[in-house]
């Protein structure tokens, strides 16, 4: 636990252009991503951003489709009680629900998974469950979740439906991934904008903005949360940084770089 006031953060940043962990405003903490770590899942990934760790696992089912001729895609993220003293089990609170929906949005808007190819009949097909668990938490679960989720989807294999059941030892040929996405989360503390906030920075922020971009330079998801406001210029600056981060991803990653897009 590290705690300091907003005044402390601002005073330190304004005089040194450094955050309390020694980072500059747009500097990421160390990022490590690995995939293929859970054999029982049909795809898995794990990502660490600083001291925040998120694991993602894919499970495939077969059945009725929600939407005609499109496979189902269900994304869920769990703020596991193991990750932080303030996370409790039980029905998800608004923070948990918002997080799940924010993470879902990027994958869905970017059409990362080719869902049309997962319908075998107009009303029947595959369901891709992408479930994430925060295992250790020090702020910015969103970016870690996107990294872990992307790794899990890149690792994904779809078991063949035999007509009766899913044969989880035999898989469909080819890749079902048609886009790669990357998320950048910013915190705004007074007029200072920082990338990849720690937990102590997040609680001082009046606004948090997550920007998800794909490999074509599209913005595929934005979420602003918090009771503060952001200016047009600030938003423009954040988008620029988010796009730059997306193309810098190879430099940012250590560990299993197969997970990059």
């Amino acid at each position: 636990m590290i705690e300091y006031s907003r005044e402390m953060f601002l005073e330190y940043y304004r005089s040194r252009k450094l955050r309390l962990d020694g980072r500059r405003a747009y500097e990421y903490r160390e990022i490590v991503v690995r995939k293929g770590i859970i054999a029982t899942a049909e795809g898995s990934g794990i990502a660490r951003v600083g001291d925040t760790v998120v694991i993602a696992g894919v499970k495939i089912e077969y059945g009725d489709l929600f939407e005609e001729a499109k496979g189902n895609f269900v994304v869920n993220i769990d703020l596991s009680p193991i990750a932080h003293q303030t996370f409790v089990s039980g029905p998800p609170d608004e923070r948990s629900i918002e997080l799940s929906r924010v993470v879902d949005r990027g994958f869905r808007s970017a059409e990362v998974v080719a869902l049309e190819r997962l319908a075998t009949e107009p009303k029947r097909g595959y369901t891709v469950y992408l479930d994430m668990y925060v295992l250790d938490y020090d702020g910015n679960a969103v970016d870690a979740a996107y990294l872990a989720g992307m790794a899990a989807l890149l690792d994904m294999k779809i078991p063949k439906y035999t007509g009766e059941t899913l044969d989880r030892s035999s898989y469909l040929e080819g890749s079902f991934i048609q886009n790669h996405i990357f998320s950048s989360t910013f915190a705004k503390i007074d007029d200072v904008i920082i990338l990849d906030p720690t937990h102590s920075e997040m609680i001082l922020a009046q606004s948090l903005v997550s920007i998800v971009v794909d490999s074509h330079g599209n913005i595929v998801g934005i979420q602003k949360s918090g009771e503060g406001s952001i200016t047009r210029q600030e938003l423009g600056e954040m988008i620029k940084i988010a796009l730059k981060n997306r193309s810098d991803i190879n430099k940012l990653l250590i560990g299993d770089t197969d997970a990059k897009g």
Partner: peptide, 19 residues
């Protein structure tokens, strides 16, 4: 003590979200 299972922990079907 809280024992929980990830939805992807089983070789078979997708698990439930509630214990």
């Amino acid at each position: 003590v809280e024992y929980r299972m990830a939805t992807f922990c089983s070789l078979e079907e997708h698990g439930k979200y509630t214990p």
